[in-house]
Measured scan of single mutants.
Amino acid sequence: SYYEILDVPRSASADDIKKAYRRKALQWHPDKNPDNKEFAEKKFKEVAEAYEVLSDKHKREIYDR
């Protein structure tokens, strides 16, 4: 789930989600993982997609249904 990707509970606040996104984006940024760039790019995209949905109140409500 998007919550698992960002490592936050379903009850996470918008601020918690933003902090988790920043932490995970740094962790999986391809430039930070030169030895495993392809895998890092995949993870980085997953993190971005999760944040896009969970950071938008309307999209998150739909996702949580």
Rank of each mutant, 00 (worst) to 15 (best):
S1Q: 10
S1R: 09
Y2P: 04
Y2D: 00
Y2G: 01
Y2V: 03
E4M: 10
E4R: 10
E4P: 01
E4Q: 12
I5Y: 07
L6G: 00
L6P: 00
L6C: 01
L6S: 00
D7V: 03
D7I: 02
D7S: 12
V8S: 02
V8Y: 00
V8L: 11
P9M: 07
P9S: 08
P9A: 11
P9L: 08
R10T: 11
R10A: 08
R10W: 11
R10I: 11
S11I: 08
S11L: 14
S11Y: 13
A12E: 01
A12I: 01
A12H: 01
S13G: 08
S13W: 03
S13K: 07
S13T: 13
A14G: 12
D15V: 09
D16G: 04
D16C: 10
D16L: 08
D16N: 07
D16T: 09
D16H: 06
K18T: 14
K18N: 14
K18E: 15
K18R: 14
K19P: 01
K19F: 06
K19C: 11
A20Q: 05
A20D: 02
A20T: 02
A20V: 01
Y21L: 04
Y21V: 02
R22A: 15
R22D: 15
R22Q: 14
R22W: 14
R22H: 14
R23H: 10
K24N: 05
K24H: 06
A25Y: 15
A25N: 06
A25C: 14
L26I: 13
Q27D: 07
Q27P: 02
W28D: 01
H29F: 06
H29Q: 10
H29G: 09
H29I: 06
P30G: 05
D31N: 09
D31S: 12
K32Q: 13
K32Y: 15
N33F: 15
N33G: 03
N33I: 04
N33V: 05
N33K: 05
N33D: 05
P34M: 13
P34G: 10
P34W: 11
P34L: 13
D35C: 13
D35T: 12
N36V: 06
K37G: 07
E38I: 10
E38Y: 08
E38K: 13
E38V: 10
E38A: 14
E38T: 10
F39E: 13
F39Q: 09
A40P: 01
A40V: 05
A40R: 05
A40G: 04
A40L: 05
E41C: 11
E41L: 15
E41I: 11
K42P: 03
K43W: 07
F44V: 04
F44R: 08
F44N: 04
K45H: 09
K45G: 07
E46W: 06
E46L: 11
V47P: 00
V47Y: 04
V47I: 14
V47S: 04
V47D: 00
V47L: 13
V47F: 05
V47W: 03
V47E: 01
A48D: 06
A48E: 15
A48M: 15
E49V: 14
E49R: 09
A50V: 03
A50K: 00
A50L: 01
Y51R: 01
Y51Q: 01
Y51T: 02
Y51I: 02
E52H: 10
V53R: 03
V53N: 05
L54A: 00
L54F: 01
S55F: 05
S55W: 04
D56P: 01
K57N: 12
K57P: 15
K57I: 12
K57C: 09
H58L: 11
H58K: 12
K59Q: 10
K59E: 06
K59F: 06
R60H: 03
R60C: 03
R60Q: 04
E61Y: 10
E61S: 07
E61H: 07
E61A: 11
I62L: 15
I62M: 12
I62T: 07
Y63V: 02
Y63P: 02
Y63K: 02
Y63E: 02
Y63N: 02
D64F: 02
